[in-house]
Simulated scan of single mutants.
Amino acid sequence: MRLTVLERGHRLRTKALFTLVRLVSRQPVVDAVKLALYRREFYGAGELTHEAMRGPSAWSVGDRELMAAFVSTVNQTPFCTAAHSATSRLWYGDDAKVTATLTDLQTAPIDEGLRATLGLLAKLTREHDVNPDDIRAVLAHGVSPAQISDALAVCLAFNITDRLADAFGFDLASPEAMTAGARYLLKRGYR
């Protein structure tokens, strides 16, 4: 369901910000930003997402962006997959690595700890359940308990965001708009 209020229901200050974004980036404001700034009290996931994606972690920003893109791929959410794969690509400077990971996790050119972690996130996203054996399998690949916790926070944030994107019918922006958004996310985070 596409909400027209996201197109024209913002306060004057927010509309001015959108105008500035369009002038500077030469790209439209993407739907995720429109939702996040429409009713901050409704979409309070901004702080949760910022902490998961930019808080202290042994995972790099690129790794966490790849996790977000991967969870979004499992959820079949095109907007979030495109947005976070663009951000991950910019961070890594490696389009092939991101594409390969989202296409075939088993043959992707990533380390085994990240592969095992993404497998855990896929299982949790699909089945809504993981067990102690699943966690032990990830730990066996050298991933720390703190890294598992951080990855689960990314999974939580993007399972929420993916469902909102699907429910509100987020438009898939152009690759140029996604790249502009990715640059912003790398510079400013999710606040």
Rank of each mutant, 00 (worst) to 15 (best):
A32R: 01
L23D: 11
A96C: 01
E65T: 02
P28N: 08
V74S: 15
A36V: 06
D63Y: 09
R89Q: 03
P56Q: 09
T87P: 11
T73Y: 11
R89W: 05
R54G: 06
L37C: 12
L66Y: 05
G62S: 06
Q27D: 12
T77Y: 00
Y43D: 11
G55S: 04
T77N: 05
S25G: 11
L37R: 05
A58M: 04
G46L: 15
M67G: 15
T87E: 04
K34N: 12
D94E: 12
H50C: 13
L48M: 14
L35K: 00
W59N: 05
L23F: 06
L35E: 03
L90P: 12
F70L: 08
D31C: 15
S57P: 14
G55M: 06
L66H: 04
Y43W: 09
L90N: 02
L23P: 05
E41D: 07
S57W: 02
A83L: 12
S72D: 01
S57H: 09
Q27C: 15
D95H: 10
L66Q: 02
P78Y: 00
E65C: 13
E65M: 11
D95L: 13
G55F: 04
H84I: 08
D94P: 15
A58K: 01
K97M: 12
C80S: 06
A69F: 07
A68N: 01
S85Q: 14
D31T: 02
R40W: 05
R40V: 10
G46T: 03
S72R: 09
Y38W: 07
T73C: 08
A82I: 01
F42M: 15
K97G: 11
Q76D: 11
T87C: 06
T49F: 01
A83Q: 04
G93I: 11
Y92G: 14
D95T: 14
F79S: 04
R89N: 10
T87L: 13
V71H: 07
F70D: 01
D95N: 14
L37E: 07
C80H: 00
A32S: 07
A82S: 07
V98F: 13
S25K: 13
S57M: 10
S85F: 08
A58Q: 09
V33P: 13
V30H: 00
G46P: 05
S60V: 14
R40I: 06
L90S: 08
G62D: 03
V30L: 08
A69G: 15
L66V: 02
R54T: 08
G55V: 08
A32M: 04
A52H: 02
D31H: 13
V74N: 12
S60K: 07
M53K: 03
Y43S: 15
E41C: 05
R54H: 09
E47W: 01
W59Y: 09
V71T: 09
V71A: 12
V29G: 10
A83N: 06
V24C: 11
Y43M: 10
A45D: 13
T87F: 14
S57I: 06
Q76A: 05
A36L: 10
K97A: 15
Y38R: 01
R40H: 05
M67L: 13
R64M: 10
Y43H: 08
P78G: 14
V33K: 08
A82H: 02
S72M: 03
P78L: 04
N75Y: 00
Y38G: 10
D94I: 01
P56S: 13
R54Y: 12
T73S: 07
Q27L: 11
L48V: 13
C80A: 06
E47H: 07
T81E: 15
P56A: 11
